[in-house]
Amino acid sequence: MKNKLEQIKNQAFTDLHDLMNKKTSLNLEENLRTLRIKYLGRKGELSQILRNLKDLSVTEKKELGALANSIKKDLEAVFKEKEDEILGGNSKDYDLSLPGKEIKTGHLHPLTLIQRDLEDIFKSLGFSILEGPELESDYYNFEALNISKHHPARDMQDTFYVNWEKNKKDEKLVMRTHTSPVQVRAMQTYGAPLKAIVPGKVFRNEAIDASHEHTFYQLEGLMIDKDISITNMIALMKELLKGIFKKEVPVRIRPGFFPFVEPGIELDISCQLCGGEGCSVCKQSGWLELFPAGMVHPKVLEAGGIDSKKYSGFAFGLGLTRLVMMKYHINDIRLFNSGDLRFLEQF
């Protein structure tokens, strides 16, 4: 009897070992249950032996009973262990619906995000991405762009002037009022043909409120080649809009005056906030000025060292900050430079 018990125990361990070492999980759970019933079930081998104990003497009963119970305990423990390996054991008490804990994430500034979108579009069209100084000379910011010292067009851009003792007293530097100075710098450096954009920070001497900022972002574009025409310019601008808005947006193109282009145009898009119905953002007109553009003025080409008889081109400026406001429906321009994480963490 004692031998029989040891035999059952060994057999059970062997069967279990074989089962668990099969290189497949196919029907594993079921096979394990069958095995458990075989050894530990009500009609299992161990139960049968225990049932036969009643016929034995008291000492034998005591000895074999203790042994059988200990074997039963061992087997139960080992079956439990194997079941846990497969079924996860106590982890079934875990509340599966608990939320995931957040690992802190960083955020890029919304201007960076939109700037990248635009850069991607232009890169795919073969444009270079250039940059220029934010603190500029009067020459590049105005003179080279056909805006002489006493041109009334200087009124169009309220300018921050900067004192510098190394310059003569009347030669103040300026915080660039637009990204256009890079047009001339790029022409001087790279010559024609040239396809480039210049995203960057610009400054206007304007009091700050919800819709005015003295510091904002623009994106300048420039394309110079032989025989570039007005219809080329219009084609590029419309293509660009498709890229930005991912859909056809109604536009209108009208004359506009900027000294560094001739002719100059303004491209308006149907107001994206009111759908062209008229709202406070578009001053009830249904249209938003999105980008000023024009054919590069021959004087500007000449300043850039490019032969205006041989080459022509167009340039445009895009209000990046305004575009971001439109895209995310941001109604307070001050947020961009606020450093307020409640704002920045939304992007």
């Binding site: 219809t231 080329n232 219009i234 084609a235 590029l236 002719p263 145009i265």
Partner: peptide, 30 residues
């Protein structure tokens, strides 16, 4: 170029058919 402006604005920019520029392939300045 000023005359170019007079003519094109009177025609109206919206009345001009856009035309893609035909430009030479060139690797952009990185």
């Amino acid at each position: 170029e000023d005359l170019l402006e007079e003519v094109s604005r009177m025609i109206g920019y919206d009345n001009l058919e856009p035309a893609s520029p035909s430009s030479v392939l060139e690797v952009p300045i990185i």
